[in-house]
């Protein structure tokens, strides 16, 4: 459909790497500026969706097969919950990050980074999965 237009291809080729980089920046810089796991996941997913729209969903499926996005979806929640379990095993309350390291600030920082990463994984996985499912259904309709 859209993959005939060379302008779109070139521009999106230029745009997609910065978008992904920006997503990672938002993910790991969320402590200091605006941002965090939710935004980063959404930005990452929108870069992926842009790629899928311009270069065809088949190429995108090669880049992120269904099992990978589902793995992202589940492992994000598990990472979040796992941090909580680890912190309670280490003597604090559930999701109390202060005990994760010797220093309160270092522990909090580590915990926040980890769970934000978990949130980002889940959100990106969810958005990409939903997009791919809608697309798959669309294709099944066209085949009929």
């Amino acid at each position: 459909m859209l993959n005939q237009t060379s302008i779109l291809r070139v521009i999106s080729k230029l745009l997609i790497p910065p978008i992904m980089l920006f997503g990672l920046y938002v993910q790991f810089h969320g402590d200091f500026g605006p941002g965090g796991g939710f935004q980063a996941g959404v930005i990452f997913a929108s870069a992926f969706i842009l790629y899928a729209l311009i270069f065809g969903v088949d190429n995108a499926r090669k880049a992120a097969p269904a099992w990978l996005t589902r793995l992202m979806l589940a492992s994000g929640v598990l990472l979040f919950g796992g941090v909580g379990v680890v912190s309670s095993l280490m003597g604090g309350g559930y999701l109390n990050y202060s005990v994760l390291a010797n220093d309160v600030h270092a522990g909090q920082h580590l915990g926040i980074t980890l769970i934000e990463f978990g949130v980002g994984l889940t959100v990106a996985g969810a958005m990409i999965t939903i997009f791919l499912i809608f697309d798959g259904l669309l294709r099944a309709e066209e085949e009929d």
């Binding site: 965090g36 959404v42 969810a126």
Partner: peptide, 10 residues
């Protein structure tokens, strides 16, 4: 609201 937006889209 931050979390509500993302949950909203889901």
């Amino acid at each position: 609201i931050l979390t509500a937006i993302v949950v909203g889209v889901a």
